[in-house]
Deep mutational scan, measured.
Amino acid sequence: MAAGGDHGSPDSYRSPLASRYASPEMCFVFSDRYKFRTWRQLWLWLAEAEQTLGLPITDEQIQEMKSNLENIDFKMAAEEEKRLRHDVMAHVHTFGHCCPKAAGIIHLGATSCYVGDNTDLIILRNALDLLLPKLARVISRLADFAKERASLPTLGFTHFQPAQLTTVGKRCCLWIQDLCMDLQNLKRVRDDLRFRGVKGTTGTQASFLQLFEGDDHKVEQLDKMVTEKAGFKRAFIITGQTYTRKVDIEVLSVLASLGASVHKICTDIRLLANLKEMEEPFEKQQIGSSAMPYKRNPMRSERCCSLARHLMTLVMDPLQTASVQWFERTLDDSANRRICLAEAFLTADTILNTLQNISEGLVVYPKVIERRIRQELPFMATENIIMAMVKAGGSRQDCHEKIRVLSQQAASVVKQEGGDNDLIERIQVDAYFSPIHSQLDHLLDPSSFTGRASQQVQRFLEEEVYPLLKPYESVMKVKAELCL
């Protein structure tokens, strides 16, 4: 049975990233139509530049190519590739079939990587351009969430054990800070992308030097003109047959890092959902379990974690691919890159769409948070109580021993009897502590235990987050809708 299948058929496997999760716009960027249309555009740009620099290419040939950029006979191309065992030459023939007058000058002087690699770089750039505003929107939604809850005390956790208090907004800023680093890295790697350009079979530009009869300047002009037509500021000066596969490492490393950030955020949300302090959106008709109707599973956060793990592992592909590119190139890269580049971007696209949807509907339960604080705060307040007693004339050592005994009794009630923490009640009825009984409410005010959390939130948002989001103001209103 021949390899390949009808990918629109229910009898043929289709990647869930495309069929179930990723956005239509990201799927289109990695589609065959987008790819092969870009090949034709690159052939047109090459012909236009070659004509401008004096090669015998007519206006009629150029116009014929322009008129057929979208006229792609995919069936013919597939048949040609089956016959020739070469995808680029299959599309040269297919393009030439609908451009008979231009057929002889299509791909003039070029090698397969002229269309293959340059198209990949265009796709990487455009895919990054799709991700950047999506990530900015996630940051914006979380920034709104953090600002609104900047002063809401909550129990902090280290080692997932109760620690000092923080605020809900401050905790959210930990998430935002990681995503801001990801946004900066995505922008950097996007701006650092260079075009492969017009380089020939081993990167020496020998074929173009021959076409222009040894004119170095025209060869350099050709490279520059096509690079500018493709919208790049610069091209690699040095290439082998391909652009260095280190570029793929750079791009997928940034995406993998984004995956790590999203995994951490969504894990926190899942843990908070278990504590009943916070939940992701839950639709009115949504079913959490087929057997347990009360369940409210954090399905979206779980999906993000599941896909983020996949995204983090994909960076190993370009690392290994770059390491086995012998001399000017081997074909070890080809099949692998067809999979890992598309999957990385479709996965990143999915987790950003999902995280935006989550961040637009996060639900906080202040009463649950308050109750958990009441359970733990008495123990945390013991040092403040000791200091207040010393100020009232008591002995630190005597007070410490009193607190120690009462704390152990209260802990026994919590752990052995399943009761509430009654340390404060014990202190309130103990005559030894009568000098500070009137101060206990103040000493137990949760806001006095959150330090500068709310001020940190305000400063972080104003100095770091809002300036970073400013270039994306025009796209901030787009909502994230999930079908599944």
Results as ranks from 00 to 15, higher is better:
G200H: 03
R14E: 15
V29R: 05
K367A: 14
E481T: 14
A256V: 07
G361R: 14
Q285V: 14
V254L: 10
I373A: 07
A143L: 06
L319C: 00
L183E: 08
L44I: 11
V92C: 11
A127Y: 03
I385S: 07
D117H: 01
E279R: 01
V115L: 13
V115D: 01
V254I: 11
A410E: 02
L44F: 05
V29Q: 11
V364G: 03
R374L: 06
E370A: 11
D178P: 00
L319N: 03
A136I: 15
N185G: 13
M181Y: 09
M316G: 09
L355K: 00
E50V: 05
S207L: 03
H7Y: 13
P318T: 07
S407R: 03
E464A: 05
T227H: 12
A411Y: 06
W43Y: 03
F208C: 08
S395Y: 07
S434Y: 08
L152K: 07
G259S: 09
L355A: 10
A206Q: 15
P153S: 05
L255W: 02
A47V: 07
K66I: 07
V262K: 04
V92K: 01
K477G: 10
V92R: 00
L272C: 07
G197W: 01
G169A: 01
C113W: 02
P281L: 06
T321Y: 08
T94N: 09
L53K: 02
L275Y: 10
S140W: 15
Q161W: 00
I427Q: 04
E462I: 12
E328N: 04
K229A: 07
Y13R: 09
E80P: 02
S12V: 15
K187Q: 11
E302N: 07
T166A: 04
L377S: 04
C180Y: 05
G54E: 11
Q161V: 00
T167H: 07
W43K: 00
S447I: 13
S290Y: 03
L183S: 09
A90H: 03
G96D: 05
T242K: 03
T38Y: 10
P471W: 15
C340Y: 15
F145V: 09
L193D: 05
L255E: 05
M181N: 08
K415L: 06
R338T: 00
R329I: 06
C304L: 15
L42T: 09
Y472A: 10
G393A: 05
L155K: 00
I386C: 15
L406F: 08
P24N: 15
L482G: 05
T201M: 00
G419P: 02
L152N: 09
K199C: 08
L468Y: 01
L314D: 05
G451D: 00
N126K: 11
Y466K: 14
E148G: 10
V189E: 08
V414C: 03
